[in-house]
Design a protein around this nucleic acid. Structure first.
Length: 416
DNA sequence: TCTGGGGTCCTAGGACCC
DNA sequence: TCTGGGGTCCTAGGACCC
């Protein structure tokens, strides 16, 4: 049976959800990502009305405001977007036994052999769009092809609210007809190379031998391009991808020079990371940090430990140690990040784990905090250090042994 | 236009072992 | 004793995606 796939992509997702929830925003330029005064924020989604002003994703909010001062600016509500995304993914599951979600607003549906149920591809597409619009109020753009890679590019051609069908056998001519800017996986650097060598369309790349391609682009990327313009997907795009790492980072509104402030932020990151790790039943013995200096130069450092990290304090010890070893004293920092790599499922046994590691109590406390936070999200329980200095907001807190409660009252000072 | 946050994959070099 | 080759793990940095 010929394989067939749909790539479904929600249009201007965050902005559309806002317009759905707030009828007064409809027909107006909505920009999600930050408020006009927010330094260092960027646009995460712009409604099509906003795009008419030249506003697009990843653009600094400051720039967007110059282009579109009359726009509606919002910081966004991820919980709501995740909720809406889950609704849509649920609908996708009604149409395919194999739905592969690749981001909050996109998924691949394997519709191989579903024609008996829903009719030929154009019919399936029509029904799918209708179901999404009818049940969620959102519009979705679709691409259909015999592999996921080509389907993904096709959906991009159909935006907004369209359907683009590449018939079986039509993949290669489709890819050849494409301007190189549309090749998914070829970003800024690759585009520069295309320009340098006068490559304008897929067909221009198609004409080059593998040797020539390899000379210009290197081994892996050459193979990727070679296959892409022939309408075949590189293995890495077709394979299911699992979770391999988990990270949290924060950009400060102003460069920070004070190491205590930075380490306090690092501690806060550790809490978020550990709770997510616990929540997902993962474990890891590879820790890493990321430091971005005022001039945007970025360094990272990682360390593999003999045993998986068990507690927030343990993680903090390793991350602050890496930080102290790597940080060039006196340089302003705009971003600090940390995370865990090489994630394994929590069940994987590790040597030395069977006997008491001495931090069982701590681990249990953290597990409790996690459970409470899950049940009562507004409680926002946190462990000790992060309330010494709070760099995100000014909140009033009541301390409770080693735990503290934030209540969102933004009236007090940031030192207590 | 001074550039978020959360990810994946690739490259290249070094350590270490056989 | 002046020097091979393969495999695996680790590390840092960068390209790319939404």
């Amino acid at each position: 049976m010929t394989p067939y796939y749909i790539h479904a992509d929600l249009d201007a997702f965050y902005a559309s959800v806002e317009q759905l929830d707030h009828p007064e925003y409809r027909g107006k330029p909505v920009i999600v990502g930050g408020l006009p005064g927010d330094r260092r924020s960027v646009v995460s989604a712009a409604s099509y009305e906003a795009r008419n002003y030249g506003v697009h994703s990843a653009m600094p909010i400051v720039r967007a405001y110059e282009l579109c001062p009359a726009g509606i600016y919002l910081r966004g509500n991820m919980r709501r977007y995740r909720e809406k995304s889950a609704e849509v993914m649920g609908i996708f599951s009604d149409f395919s036994p194999e739905v592969r979600q690749i981001s909050i607003d996109e998924a691949f549906l394997d519709i191989t052999g579903t024609q008996g149920l829903f009719g030929p591809p154009p019919e399936i597409a029509r029904k799918l769009k209708e179901a999404v619009r009818g049940k969620t109020g959102l519009t979705v753009s679709l691409g259909l092809a015999s592999n996921r890679y080509v389907a993904k590019i096709a959906s991009g051609m159909s935006k907004p609210d369209g359907t683009y069908i590449v018939p079986p056998g039509g993949e290669e001519p489709f890819m050849c007809s494409l301007p190189v800017a549309k090749i998914w996986g070829a970003g800024k650097k690759a585009q520069e190379q295309f320009k340098k060598y006068g490559l304008k369309t897929g067909a221009d790349i198609h004409r080059l031998s593998r040797e020539t391609l390899s000379h210009i682009f290197g081994k892996a990327f050459c193979l990727f391009l070679y296959r892409a313009v022939r309408g075949e997907a590189a293995a890495s795009f077709e394979d299911a991808r699992g979770t391999h790492s988990m990270s949290v980072e924060r950009t400060f509104p102003y460069d920070v020079y004070d190491e205590f402030t930075i380490e306090t932020e690092l501690f806060a990151l550790c809490q978020t990371i550990m709770f997510r790790l616990l929540d997902g039943h993962w474990q890891s013995r590879t820790v890493f940090i990321k430091i971005r200096y005022h001039d945007f130069s970025t360094i990272s450092a990682q360390e593999s430990l003999p045993r998986p990290v068990h507690t927030i304090n343990e993680l903090f010890e390793h991350l602050s140690d890496l930080f102290r070893r790597k940080y060039q004293s006196g340089r302003g920092i705009r971003l600090i990040g940390g995370g865990l790599a090489n994630l394994e499922t929590g069940k994987a046994a590790h040597q030395g784990e069977l006997f008491d590691t001495g931090n069982e109590k701590e681990r249990n406390l953290e597990q409790c905090i996690l459970e409470i936070n899950k049940k009562f999200p507004s409680a926002a329980l946190k462990k000790g250090r992060s309330w010494l200095v709070d760099t995100t907001s000014l909140t009033k807190r009541v301390s409770l042994n080693n735990i503290c409660v934030t209540n969102g009252d933004k009236s007090t000072s940031n030192h207590e």
